[in-house]
Computed example of a mutant assay.
Amino acid sequence: MDSVVVRPSSGKDIPMILGLLYELGRPKPQKDSEVETFRKLVTKYVKDSDKTILVAELDSVRIIGMVSVVYLSRLNQSTLEMYIPELIVLEKYQNNGTGKKLINYCITLTKEKKCHRIRLESGNQRKESHKFYEHLGFEQSARSFTLNLD
């Protein structure tokens, strides 16, 4: 989609960012106070110099996707690693190049920051996402293990 522009997020994007996270299956606030807590978490994330959130905006009006980025130092590398915790495109706008635009913007950032790689995780059930990442040149390189503490 030529009318989709990727840009760094701003404070006004927070409600749409939260909506995209809910679409991905992230926890939704159960009380009004939790909405404010989530807003503060996103605001803090954006203000951290080692993190960023990029949004894909359609026709300069509607946010239809986002990617969150964390720059990590590794003990065995002299350059940073870009880690992508979330990449989301609204289902209605998937398969039209928006996800690729988001990843390409990330690749541009890795060159500016001189990162040695981009790493991301994708849930086992997200088979279409796996095909998308492989199509873009990503390789499955590890297994992820989780210990939930709640």
Rank of each mutant, 00 (worst) to 15 (best):
S73K: 14
R74W: 15
T79R: 13
A142M: 10
E81A: 12
L149T: 02
E57I: 11
V61Q: 12
S49I: 04
T110S: 01
V5F: 13
V70E: 11
S60E: 15
R126E: 08
E112H: 12
E36W: 11
R119T: 04
L109S: 03
E91T: 01
S122D: 02
G97F: 10
R143T: 14
G97M: 11
T43K: 08
E121R: 06
L80G: 05
P15W: 00
Y93C: 13
K100V: 00
K40L: 09
G19M: 00
F132V: 01
M82F: 04
P27G: 09
L75Y: 09
S9P: 01
L20R: 10
Y22Q: 14
V5R: 06
E34Y: 08
S10Q: 07
S78T: 13
Q30T: 12
F145S: 10
V35N: 13
R7A: 13
Y45Q: 09
T98H: 02
S9R: 02
V46T: 08
L54A: 01
S141E: 00
P8T: 09
L90G: 00
S33F: 06
H116M: 03
M1G: 10
I14E: 00
S60T: 11
I53Y: 14
V5S: 04
Q77M: 10
L147N: 02
L20N: 14
P85G: 04
V69C: 11
L41V: 05
G19F: 00
S68W: 03
